[in-house]
């Protein structure tokens, strides 16, 4: 049984139906790319999976406890003027085990330093978040989800405004987490990253959703890019009927 299944899900934001009758089973240990044009309902779906938006109808079956679901929001959603260091941000990932009162112990600090090393953040423990580069901040946020030992990880455009070094580290870490069995869902816009990272694609368009093979989507994109060489048509302009559905999911 998969951890995350959507059953005939209909979602609305501010009285407007955004997604209708969405169903799908997300495979454990796979990285799924959530793809769609702006306003297609990607963020709405993430909110529903996180349990923050009650659906109009249908259900999200999620076998992961709330504490082990992690959401990496877009960087703009964070208040970066807040005087918090990398260490404090990462330790807040201990929330599921420590809550409001429990003291952070030596083993928590050890675990944090191991994760920081892995993410290339060594030596930045006491640096305020406001002084980090976009890439370092994104790695620190991923560090928090690693501290959280997330089993379901949702990322909203994690590669926007980050350097190539960070993109590599993020991709490697996400792959490791998936190999360890975590369900990873990433909102992606960039075709190159999609080709590198995604095992499968959940495409949202016109209020509906469909599983597609990454290769199919890439082929379509390249064909469309050749046709619109001057205008550089984005792959997200694809309509659902354009793309044959994937048979595996």
């Amino acid at each position: 049984m998969s951890r995350l299944t959507l059953e005939a899900l209909t979602l609305a934001q501010s009285g407007r139906t955004v997604l209708e009758n969405i169903s799908g089973t997300f495979e454990d240990g796979a990285i799924t790319a959530l793809v769609g044009a702006n306003g297609a309902g990607k963020s709405t779906l993430i909110q529903a999976i996180m349990g923050l938006l009650p659906p109009l109808s249908g259900k999200v079956h999620c076998g992961v406890s709330k504490e082990r679901r992690a959401w990496l929001p877009q960087q703009l959603a964070l208040d970066l003027t807040f005087p918090m260091s990398v260490e404090e941000l990462m330790l807040s990932g201990c929330w599921p085990t420590h809550g409001t009162f429990k003291r952070y112990g030596p083993q928590d600090y050890r675990r944090m330093h191991t994760i920081m090393q892995r993410l290339g953040l060594s030596g930045l423990a006491h640096r305020p978040l406001g002084e980090l580069s976009g890439g370092q901040r994104q790695r620190a946020l991923l560090g928090r989800t690693l501290m959280q030992e997330a089993e379901l990880l949702l990322l909203d455009e994690p590669f926007a405004n980050v350097d190539t070094h960070t993109v590599e580290i993020l991709c490697d870490t996400l792959r490791e987490m998936a190999s360890a069995g975590a369900t990873v869902i990433v909102v992606l816009h960039d075709m190159e990253q999609l080709a590198k990272l995604a095992d499968c694609v959940f495409l949202l368009a016109g209020g509906h959703a469909q599983w597609v093979e990454p290769e199919t989507l890439l082929e379509r994109h390249h064909a469309s890019a050749r046709r619109h060489a001057h205008t550089q048509a984005p792959f997200i302009s694809l309509n659902l009927p354009d793309v044959p559905p994937c048979s595996t999911y």
Binding site: L52, R69, W71, F82, M84, S92, W95, T100
Partner: peptide
């Protein structure tokens, strides 16, 4: 002192806290 940690996390990233219930 009792609500310090919650307050700090809520200031930086309210969605994280909501996600934690």
């Amino acid at each position: 002192a009792l609500i310090f940690r919650v307050l700090v996390v809520e200031c930086l990233d309210p969605l994280f806290l909501r996600g934690q219930g």
